[in-house]
Design a protein around this nucleic acid. Sequence first.
DNA 1: GATTAATAACCGTACGTTCGGTAAAATATA
DNA 2: TATATTTTACCGAACGTACGGTTATTAATC
Lengths: 187, 187
Amino acid sequence: MRPPKVEDQALLDGLMAVLRAKGYEGSSLNELAGSSGLQKASLYHRFPGGKKEITLAVLHYVHEWIRKYIYERLTDQSLSPAERLGDVIQSIHSLYQGGEKSCILKALSMDSSVELFREEIKESMQRWIDGFTALGVDYGFTRDAAQEKAFQVLIAIQGSLIVSKGLGSTAPFVAAVEAIEKMYREV
Amino acid sequence: MRPPKVEDQALLDGLMAVLRAKGYEGSSLNELAGSSGLQKASLYHRFPGGKKEITLAVLHYVHEWIRKYIYERLTDQSLSPAERLGDVIQSIHSLYQGGEKSCILKALSMDSSVELFREEIKESMQRWIDGFTALGVDYGFTRDAAQEKAFQVLIAIQGSLIVSKGLGSTAPFVAAVEAIEKMYREV
DNA sequence: GATTAATAACCGTACGTTCGGTAAAATATA
DNA sequence: TATATTTTACCGAACGTACGGTTATTAATC
C-alpha cells in the first residue's frame, strides 16, 4: 500500500519546523523526513537537489508568506494604516507563536549557511522592510523616517526573539511587539 | 619534539571563533581543532567532556568577558555615565567587529542547543542587562525605565546583528549602536 | 499501461569519541 | 648535582555511529 501523497503545504510546514529550530547544519535528513511525514528517499523524490533544495523551497515558501501576510496587508489601500498594522501584528504573533518559535531567517543566517541562501534571506528581509516602510509613509512619515522605523521593527522582532529564547521567557517579545504598535499609533 | 603548550586564551579564542560562526551542531571537532591549533585528541586532553565541555568553557570565557568589559565598566563609579557608555560602546564594536561577527549567545540559542546551555546563556544576557540597567539609573532614570532601556539595548544589538548578516551590510548594526548612544545622551 | 509517489535497503563518508603512545617539564630521590 | 619518577601536553590511528545521498522496487493514479 502506497500512502497518499503528502501535500505541498503540509510537507513545507513540517520541513520549516525543523529548519527554524535547528538551522541548516543541525537539521538531519532523518529529522526532516520524520517531521514532514515522508521517508528520506521520498524527500529526494520531491527535492532531487537534497537538503539545499529543501531549504530553498522552504525559504521560497516563507518569502511568499511574508509577501502575503506582511507586505500585501501593509500596503492594502482599502484599509486604514491602523487596521493594517493590527492585522499584521496578529500575523507576526502567530508566525512566532507569541515568541516561542524562532525565525527561520535567523536560523539560516549562521556564517556557515548564510552563503548558500544569502539572496533568499535578503529578499525576505527586504520585503518585510518595504512593507513597513510603506505603512510608515501612509502614517504620514517621510520616506526616510518610515524606512528607519521599518528597520527598527525588523530589528526589534529579531532581537526580542533571541532575548526571549536566551532568557527563557516570551516577555521580551511580547513587550517588543507592544512597543512597535505604540511607535506607530502614538503619532 | 612536543609542540609548545597552546595557552588557554589562544585556545578559547580559536574555539569561540568557530562556535560563534557555526553554532553547536555546525561546529565539527575537526574545525574546532583546526581553529584552536590543537589536534582533536589534544582537545580531549584539555576538555575530557568533549564538545559540550568545550562549549561550556567558551561560554564561561564569554561570561567573564562581559563581566569585565561590559558590566564592570558600566558600574565603574570613578567615571561619569557618559564616559562609561563611550567605553562600552567601543568594547561592543570590537566584540562584533563593527557588525561583521555574530554573537555566540545567538549562535548557541538554537532550539537544539539552547537546552544544553540555557543557564550559561541566561546568565550572560542577564549580566549585560544588569550593567545597562545600572548605567540608566546613574543617568537618572527610574529603575524600571532603566531596565526597559537595558532590554532595548540588548535587543537592538542582537537584532541588528541578524539584520546586518541577512542584508549583507554592517549599516544596520552601526546605526543601532549610534541610536543606543543617542538614547542615553539625549536626555 | 505509462507515469508518479512512495519505500526499504544500501553506500561511502564524516562525525564525535577513545586509545596507545611519545616528548617535555616538573618533582622526588640519591 | 645527577638521576629516577611522575605528570603534563600533545598526536596518529582507529572506533562505532549517523550523516547525506542513491538504487531498485512496489503500489496508486492518470
